[in-house]
Amino acid sequence: MDDLLKAFRLLMIGLASIAVLLLILVIGLFFWNQNPEIFSWESDSVELSESEELEPESGITEEGIHLESGLVADDGYQLIIANCTKCHSANLVTQNRGNRDYWKSLIIWMQTTQGLWELGDSEEKILDYLSKNYAPVQEGRRANLSGVQWYELED
C-alpha cells in the first residue's frame, strides 16, 4: 500500500513538474514572440563597432541604401555590384560624383587601361543609375565647414 502511495505521489510530482515546465515554456514562447532578444544573455554582446560592422546579407537595404555595398538602392544598383566591384570596392563609386559624360569617360578609361569588359546592354542602365544617383553637387569655391563635432577643449 505504501508502495502504491509512493508511486502515486511520484506520478503526481512528475505530472506537476511537466505542467510547470509547459507553463514556463508557453510563457517563454509568448515573450519570445514579443521580443526575440529577451533570452539573449547579453543582448548587446555582439554589437560591432563602426569599423567592424560586418556587411549584412546581399540585397538588404535600409533608408534607401544597400547595406552591403553602400550604394543607393535604386534601379540598376545590382549592375554596379556585378560589373564594378570585382576590381574595386563600391566605395570608389559612392565617393565620387559626376554627370553622364563623366561616368562614361571613366568606363572608357577602365576598359582601355584597367581590364574592364564590354558592358553591352547594361552600359546605358549603369549610366542612368550613376548619373541620377551620383550627380555632382556645386558647393562654391570653398564650402562651409561641415560635420564639426564640438567639444570643450581641456588644458
Binding site: 532578444e37 560592422e53 560586418l54 549584412p56 546579407e57 535600409e62 547595406l67
Partner: peptide, 15 residues
C-alpha cells in the same frame, strides 16, 4: 528592432 539589432542579426546570418 533598430539598426543595431538588425545589423547584429544579419551580420551573424552572413557570417
Amino acid at each position: 528592432n533598430g539598426r543595431r539589432n538588425f545589423l547584429k542579426k544579419s551580420s551573424m546570418a552572413v557570417m
